[in-house]
């Protein structure tokens, strides 16, 4: 609760009218909405929506078995057509992020499978995938060393920073940067970028993503508080 109060005061000072203020789109999340997977979550960021299901720790194929930790698998399914190279690359980024936080050593010779289904894509897809995956992992009760979240930043042609860009903003942007940050001290877990940007712009985006991640983690906390509340 103390930490919560602290963040609240920070937010109080942040919302003061000074400087340019970016904003995150509205967030919504529903957990445990599917009956078959061990954990599931649907995450919405504006009109972008991802459904995630997690199986695990469960039986693993002998060929994929790792003797000292759990095998993490990420499957990302596009809405139209078959998965292609873009999906494979996102799968890998998500898997690497999850591997950094999931305590796989606690469940050796098992598999943890994360299945992500794109429901609608309206920008910041990878960030939304990461958020959905995190919420589904939490719902499945997979041990993790920290929560994580994804934040996407876009830089306009004139260098203006946009957080959580829509598909249109992403298209017009000079550079799009996506970061995965951990929930303990907002350290960087993964970053992927597209387009041209300078050294200082990268640091600016990272700082902005860290500020935005506070909101995402607050959202996580409040939604979990609500879920485990008695009322």
């Amino acid at each position: 609760m103390q930490a919560d109060a602290k963040i609240r005061t920070e937010v109080g000072t942040e919302s003061g009218p000074r400087g340019p203020v970016c904003s995150l789109r509205h967030f919504a999340c529903e957990q445990n909405l599917l009956s078959r997977p061990d954990g599931s979550a649907s995450f919405l960021q504006g009109d972008t929506s991802i459904l995630a299901g997690v199986y695990g720790p469960a039986e693993v194929k002998v060929s994929k078995e790792i003797f000292n930790k759990a095998t993490l698998e990420v499957i990302l399914r596009p809405k139209i057509g078959l998965p292609g190279v873009a999906e494979k690359s996102r799968e890998r980024l998500i898997r690497n992020t999850c591997e950094a936080v999931v305590l796989g050593a606690l469940h050796p010779r098992t598999s943890i499978t994360i299945v992500l289904q794109v429901i609608s894509d309206a920008g910041s897809l990878l960030a939304c995938c990461l958020n959905a995956a995190c919420m589904a992992l939490v719902d499945a009760g997979v041990p993790m060393r920290a929560l994580f979240c994804g934040v996407t930043c876009a830089l306009d042609s004139d260098g203006t920073l946009v957080l959580d860009p829509t598909a249109k903003q992403e298209k017009e942007a000079r550079a799009v940067l996506t970061f995965a940050l951990d929930g303990v001290d907002q350290k960087l877990l993964m970053s992927t970028t597209k387009g041209l940007y300078s050294d200082s712009e990268l640091q600016q985006c990272l700082a902005a993503a860290q500020a935005a991640s506070q909101h995402v983690f607050r959202f996580y906390r409040e939604s979990l508080q609500r879920r485990y509340s008695k009322s």
Binding site: E14, G16, R18, G19, L24, F27, A28, A211, H215, F219
Partner: peptide, 9 residues
């Protein structure tokens, strides 16, 4: 759970 548009400073 839902959260409305959140401004980020």
């Amino acid at each position: 759970f839902k959260m409305e548009k959140a401004p980020v400073d």
